[in-house]
């Protein structure tokens, strides 16, 4: 469960649930952190849920933020779309402290969304979710012929690859020439 602090109204603010603990054990308050994506919408996520992300876990493990400090300093992920980050946060919350099942049917079915999700998950280093995403990508071409795979996965032909490579070389050459000219201009 995540709470959206500003912006979208789709996600209702909610307090994170804590794992039931034995009566004898002292109550340890769960710490929360805040993240936002490209859309600046801040998501409140528990430290337990964030443990799925090796990147964020590494960032927060030594911070020792208080609730106020964490709120004041949300982690910015400007390269991740807001809706994608929401999906990631939801997944982390759903799988907080639970063993991950072998299949996950809640992943987006739209290919554009899945592409962005894969990149985000890879960036945030969420291993289990990345495995699900990879399976989902593989499922797109299940039982398909080479021609169908080429079409679905937008694989260029050898000729297209060669043309793109030539173009890239040309562009790199032009850029290098531009830089040399600029350096020569500066020297003058």
């Amino acid at each position: 469960m995540s709470s959206t602090e500003q912006g979208t109204s789709s996600a209702a603010p909610a307090e994170p649930t804590t794992a039931p603990e034995s009566a004898a054990a002292p109550e340890v308050p769960e710490s929360f952190y805040y993240v936002h994506g490209k859309d600046k919408v801040v998501h409140k996520v528990s430290a337990g849920a964030l443990q799925h992300s090796a990147l964020i876990h590494g960032m927060i493990s030594n911070l020792g933020y208080t609730e106020e400090q964490a709120k004041a300093n949300p982690f910015p992920f400007e390269n991740i779309d807001g809706d994608i980050l929401q999906m990631v946060v939801d997944w982390c919350n759903q799988h907080k402290g639970k063993p991950t099942p072998p299949e996950d049917t809640n992943l987006p079915k739209q290919k554009e969304k899945l592409f962005d999700l894969v990149l985000a998950v890879n960036y945030l280093e969420i291993k289990e979710l990345l495995t699900y995403c990879c399976k989902q990508v593989a499922m797109m071409v299940k039982g398909k012929s080479p021609e169908e795979i080429r079409e679905i996965w937008m694989i260029p032909t050898d000729a297209e690859d060669e043309a793109a490579e030539k173009e890239a070389k040309k562009r790199a050459g032009k850029e290098a020439a531009g830089e040399t000219a600029a350096a020569a201009g500066d020297a003058k």
Binding site: K109, F115, V118, N122, L130, V137, A138, I152, I155
Partner: peptide
């Protein structure tokens, strides 16, 4: 799964390998 296409070559190489 929708009929739109998926830009597989734009994925990082290690992800492509994981998918394969």
């Amino acid at each position: 799964m929708s009929n739109s296409k998926f830009p597989f070559p734009r994925l990082p190489d290690d992800i492509c390998s994981e998918v394969l």
